[in-house]
Computed example of a mutant assay.
Amino acid sequence: MAARTRRPDRRQEPLTRERIVDAAVELLDTVGEDGLTFRALAERLATGPGAIYWHVAGKSELLSAATEAVVTAAVADEPTEPTGPATSPRDGIRAVALGLFGATERHPWLAPQLAAQLSRSPWGAVAPRIFESIGRQVQALGVPRDSWFTASSALMHYILGAAGQNAANTTSADTFGPGVDRARFLDEVSTAWESLDPDEYPFTRAAAGQLRGHDDREQFLAGIDLVLAGISALHPPAS
Rank of each mutant, 00 (worst) to 15 (best):
L27Y: 01
G92W: 06
H55F: 04
L155I: 01
T47I: 05
K59T: 04
L234F: 15
Q137A: 14
E68Y: 13
E194A: 08
Y53K: 03
V96D: 12
P128T: 02
T5A: 12
A162K: 13
N169L: 13
T150V: 13
L186M: 06
L110T: 13
A3W: 10
A222R: 13
V126W: 00
V70S: 06
Q139R: 13
T191N: 06
I52D: 01
W109N: 10
A51H: 03
A74S: 08
R120V: 07
G164K: 01
F38P: 09
A125K: 05
V21F: 01
I93E: 08
R11P: 01
V189L: 03
L62G: 07
Q12Y: 14
A97E: 10
L62K: 05
E188H: 11
A222G: 14
G48P: 00
E132R: 13
Y158A: 04
P112W: 02
P108A: 11
R4W: 00
A163Y: 07
P14I: 09
E78M: 02
I134H: 00
P236S: 12
G35Y: 00
T170I: 11
L160Y: 00
A207K: 09
Q210S: 10
L155R: 00
E43Q: 10
V71N: 06
P198V: 04
D91I: 08
A206H: 12
V143D: 14
A57W: 04
A116S: 14
A222F: 09
G213S: 11
T80H: 14
L15Y: 08
A229F: 10
L36M: 00
F203Q: 08
W54K: 14
T83V: 13
D22K: 12
S60V: 02
L141C: 02
T30H: 07
R17P: 04
R44C: 06
W54C: 07
P79I: 07
E105V: 09
A23W: 01
E194W: 01
V189N: 06
G58M: 02
P14H: 09
T191I: 09
L196T: 09
L27M: 08
A208T: 09
A73W: 01
E18P: 09
H55L: 02
G164H: 03
A57N: 10
E18Y: 06
G99C: 05
E188S: 14
A3T: 13
Q165M: 11
L160W: 01
G84W: 00
V138R: 03
G223T: 07
L28A: 04
R184H: 04
T47N: 07
E18K: 15
Q219I: 04
R17D: 08
V31K: 03
V180D: 08
A168M: 04
H235Q: 07
S147R: 15
I130R: 00
F185I: 04
F185S: 11
T191G: 15
A65D: 12
R94F: 08
P49Y: 06
E18I: 04
P237A: 11
I93S: 12
L234C: 15
A73N: 09
S153A: 10
A66I: 05
A222P: 06
H55N: 08
G58K: 04
D29G: 15
S195R: 06
R212N: 02
M1S: 15
A111I: 11
Y53S: 01
T170N: 11
A163D: 10
S133C: 05
Q117E: 15
A73I: 02
P202R: 05
A23K: 00
A162M: 10
E61P: 07
I130Y: 00
